[in-house]
Amino acid sequence: MKTNTILSLKNFSVSVEKKKIIKDINFEFEKGKIYALMGPNGSGKSTFAYSITGHPAYSVEKGSEAVFEGEDIVNLSVDKRSVKGIFLSFQNPLSILGVKLRQFLYFALQGKKDPLTISQEIKKYAKDLKISDDLLNRSLNEGASGGEKKKLEVLQAAVLDKKLIIFDEVDTGVDVDALKTIAQFLRKNKTDKTYIIITHYNRILKYLKPDHVIVLNQGVIKKVGDHTLAYDIEKNGYGK
C-alpha cells in the first residue's frame, strides 16, 4: 500500500439481494485527491457509495477488504464509519419530518463541537451556498427543491468535516446557477479532503478538475484516466 492511501479496496465485491453488483474491485484512493466515478446506469456506482458507507442492504462478500486509514471497515457499523471520517452525499436525500438539520448535527457532533460553533458554521456555510434561513428551520428537506436538497447535503459534509466524501450525483436535478454555487463551495472547502464524485456529466468536473477518472461498467473498473477521459466520455459515450 502506498503511504498516502486513504482507502484501499482489495477483492471488493458487493451483492444486493444475492445479486453480485460489484465484482472484485482492487483500487487505492489517495489522500487529498479528487476522483470522478463514471459509468452507465446500473454499473454499480451507487452500490459502491452505499457499501463504503455501510448500508445494511448491501452485503460485502467474504474475502473483500476495505481499509480506511489503516483499519478494515467492512465490519464497522454505519455510524462508526462516519466517525472515522467517511461521508456520503445522497443522490436522493430523504425528507425527515420533525427532525431539523441543526438538531441532528448537534447529535452527530456531541462532544466534538459545541452547539454555538455548529450554529455559526451552519450559518456561514448556508450563506456561501445561498440556502435560506427558512429552509434551515424546517424539518430536513421538507418541501425542498432538488437543488436545495443537494445543497443541504454539501452543507452537512462541510460542518461534519469528514476526510473522504462521496458525492453521489450531486449535480443531478440542479440548475446551472446552483451547480456553480455547489462546485465553487466544494472547491473552496476542499483543503486536504478526498472527494469521490459520482457523475454522468463533465460539467461539474470543469469546476472540480479530477486527478483521476474511473469508469465502472457491470461492476468492474473498465478504465482509469486523467480528466480528459471525462471529456472523452461526454463526447463519445461509454460505447466501446
Binding site: S77, D79, S82, F90, I96, L97, V99, F107, A108, Q156
Partner: peptide
C-alpha cells in the same frame, strides 16, 4: 441509515425519529 451515516448512534437516531414523529 441516513442519520447513522452522519455519525449518530443507532439508538440515538431512533430517538430522533420517534421525537420527529411526535413533533406535531
Amino acid at each position: 441509515f441516513y442519520l447513522t451515516s452522519r455519525g449518530i448512534k443507532k439508538s440515538d437516531a431512533e430517538g430522533l425519529l420517534v421525537n420527529g414523529f411526535i413533533d406535531p
